[in-house]
Structure formats: C-alpha cells, structure tokens
Design a binder for these strands. Structure first.
Lengths: 229, 229
DNA sequence: ACCTGAACACCGTTCAAGT
DNA sequence: ACCTGAACACCGTTCAAGT
C-alpha cells in the first residue's frame, strides 16, 4: 500500500477549475472569463488548465452544466408533469436572470451537456403526459427551443441592465426609440406595453401557450386518427 | 455650385462595408470575419471602417439585418395571416440554414434591428388574427423566442455539419453517444428518433404548436371573459 | 472630411523545460 | 504525470499623421 502524496493540498482538478470558472463568470461576467483570470484565481500556470480541460469552450459548457444540473434536480419528481415543466422553465429563467452568462452559453451549442439535461427532463414530463413518438420529439423540440430562445434574449437584456432601475431606464429608452422610428399604431402600442411588461410573467405565459398548443395538437391528431379509422 | 470630387470611384460607405461583411461571413464563416479581412477585401486601412461603423458588433447586426430584411419582405402581405407567419418562420429557417452566422447573431441580442423586424412582422400577422393587448405581447414573445431559439440551435448544427453527409454522420455520432451514456428507454428512443429526424419539419411542427396554443389560449380567455360577465 | 497604417493592449493555445 | 511560463500567432480598437 502506498500513501497518496501531493505537492499541494489543493491539487488542480477539473472540478476545481470549473468552480473557479463559475466564480469568475459570476463576478466578472462572460467578458471577464479569460484563461489568464482562471490561472490567476488558481495560482497556477497557463498550460496547467489544458491538462484537465481541452479548451475554453469546454470550460464554459461545464460551468453551465453545473448550474443547470442543480436547476433540473430541483424541478424533478412530483406527480404533476405540467407543474414540473413549469417549475423547470421557471428555474431556468431564474438561473439565467441571476447569471446571464448561462443563457448565452445555452443558446450557443445544441448538444452540450446542459442542454441535454433540459431535453431529458422535458422528455420525461411530456412522456408522463402521454405524448410519445414523433409528437414527443416535435413537442420537446418546440419547448426546448422556446426556453433556449427566451434564455438567450433575456440574458442579453439582464447583462445590459443588471438591476431594476437600469432595466427600467433601458426599456424606456428602447420604447422611446421604437415610438420615434415608426408611427404605425401597432408599434406605438407595443412600445407602451414594452415599458411596463414583466419578463418573467411573459416567459411563463409562453410556456402555457406551448402547453395549450401541445394538447390541442394532440387532440387534433386524435380526432384525425379517429376519422381515418 | 461645386462638383462632387472623390479620390476613388468606389468611395467607402457603410453600405459597401456591410456588403463586404456579408460576403466574408458567407465564404469564411463567423470566425473568418475580422476587421483585417474587411479592410483587405475593401483595400483600405483599418481605421477607415471605424469612420462608418462604431464597432464589429454593429457590423454583424447590420449584416443580419440585411439578410432578414429580404426574408421579411418576401413573407409580407397576403390575406392569410397564419400562412404569413408560417412563411416568415420558414424563410428565417432557410436563411439560417444557408447562412448559420445569421442564426447565431439573431439569438445574441434582443433589440437589434433584425429582431425588431421579425417582432413587427409577427405582430402584424397576430393582430390581423384578432389578437391584441397583453395577449398579443405574450403570443408574439412566445413565437419570436421560439423562432430565435430554434435559429440559434439549428445554426450551431449547420455550422458543424455543412452538407447532408456530414450532418448524417454527426447526428449518428451524437445518437450513439446518448444511447451509450443512458440506458433509459426514453433516451434510447430519442436517440433513434434523432438519427432520422427532419430539422425543417420539426421546426414547422413547433410553429404549429404555438399557433394552436395561441388560439386555444384565446378561446379559453374568451370563455373566461364570458363567465365573468 | 476621410483615410492610412503603425502601435497598443489584449486574447487562446502550445510547448520545451522543469519537478 | 503534472505543472510552469515564455513564446506564438493572432485579435479589436485607437490615433497621430497624412491628403
């Protein structure tokens, strides 16, 4: 039997590197994540990182996977699949609201681990609701793409205007710009609505539209099946 | 009266710069777009670009706006608003399929000109279908976010696997990886479906789910209004 | 006013050399 | 095996100097 010996008690590991990455992203944002910042944070050399991780993209994907893993775990279980879907969507929304970099990362790469976790959780809930086969793939893709799209858009907004006051000012500015550029009454009304809209409520309304759509599609498909019998 | 004199017949202009940008993006992809490539293409100095455009982000946004402008124009008009929405969505899908960089750019920034064009076109069609007020904002946001999410995800796939053969190989690889990692029957079935799924058909199925959801939501809201009378 | 191109202040990644 | 840090090959952006 041999003793485990290490030159430093806090030996470098993929886990510690990802932890440091999340910390840097949270405090300095996406533009603050540089390999130099990571090595400084861990008091190591540049090349050491590449011993545990293939490149910066993998670092970002691993960081997002860590955050989303917690969200998915928190929303899992329960015997109400619709509730699970809403809880998952809301959890993702709030994670992105707190950490805009997650939203940007999610909408960047389709087959990264964090996105696969979302796919699977959505698939499980839809399956529990009785949706299967191609309909499951279509419904899952619709929901996941909606959530990721909203994620990316909201992340960009949250990054630009971190607190409530900055957000209000920013939206007022955009609304004024719209109203100025286009006299179309529809645009004028949209500008007014934009000023006072609630991102979270609008996001959840979208989830409900989607859920309603799936079951009305399912119903139509069932009717079609009956008709062709 | 003075004559307009210019040292070169093809004087630099914002328009010519954006044109060159689109050409570079189409041939060299997003990673190929560098200020150095643009200046080389236009046979000018680096700083000249900054005389017509504030930075690289604006260049990308202007390029995407040019492409989306044509798509929106082509899908506009007609007396079938649902058809217009489907045509717009399909047009965006095909533009992104041909130019993955557009999809990446669309999902990056919420209030850029190209996205505002999409918002307005969707708003006009939904409005023609009788949706208004907050319901219009919710429905529009759902649809736009779905389209942008799918745009980003499809763009990443299209960039990774440009032609049909590469795409098939790539999807087979991902499906095999899923099947290996997770023995859950749901994942096994999803892997099988992934291998043979049609991105375009799946995207359009998603549009129909949202349309169905919008009108079933509208119906429910109408019932609620009646009930509260 | 418009353009030039060198200079500046960064990047991610690699790799010989160390322990 | 793991780590170091200098070196490499790039970036976007600025700015004094030209016409």
């Amino acid at each position: 039997m041999t003793f485990m010996t290490s030159r430093r008690t806090d030996a470098l590991s993929r886990e510690r590197i990802v932890e440091a990455t999340i910390q840097i992203l949270d405090t300095a944002g996406e533009s603050g994540l540089t390999l130099r910042a990571v090595t400084a944070h861990l008091a190591t050399g540049r090349g050491a990182i590449y011993h545990h991780v293939t490149n910066k993209d993998e670092l970002l994907a691993a960081a997002a996977d860590g955050v989303i893993g917690q969200v998915v775990a928190a929303a899992a279980g329960g015997d109400d699949p619709r509730g699970s879907i809403r809880a998952l969507a809301l959890g993702i929304f709030e994670a992105i609201d707190a950490r805009p970099w997650v939203g940007v990362q999610l909408s960047r790469e389709p087959f990264q681990p964090a996105v696969l976790q979302i796919w699977k959780a959505v698939g499980v809930s839809l399956s529990a609701l009785g949706v299967g086969g191609t309909a499951l793939a279509d419904a899952g893709s619709a929901l996941v793409n909606y959530v990721l799209g909203a994620a990316g858009q909201h992340a960009a907004g949250a990054r630009r205007a971190p607190d409530g006051a900055a957000r209000k000012e920013f939206l007022d500015g955009v609304a004024a710009e719209w109203a100025r550029q286009d006299s179309d009454p529809l645009v004028q009304e949209s500008a007014a609505l934009l000023r006072e809209h609630d991102d979270r409520a609008q996001f959840l309304a979208g989830v409900d539209i989607f859920l309603a759509g799936i079951f009305s599609s399912e119903a139509i498909a069932a009717v079609r099946r009956d008709a062709s019998d």
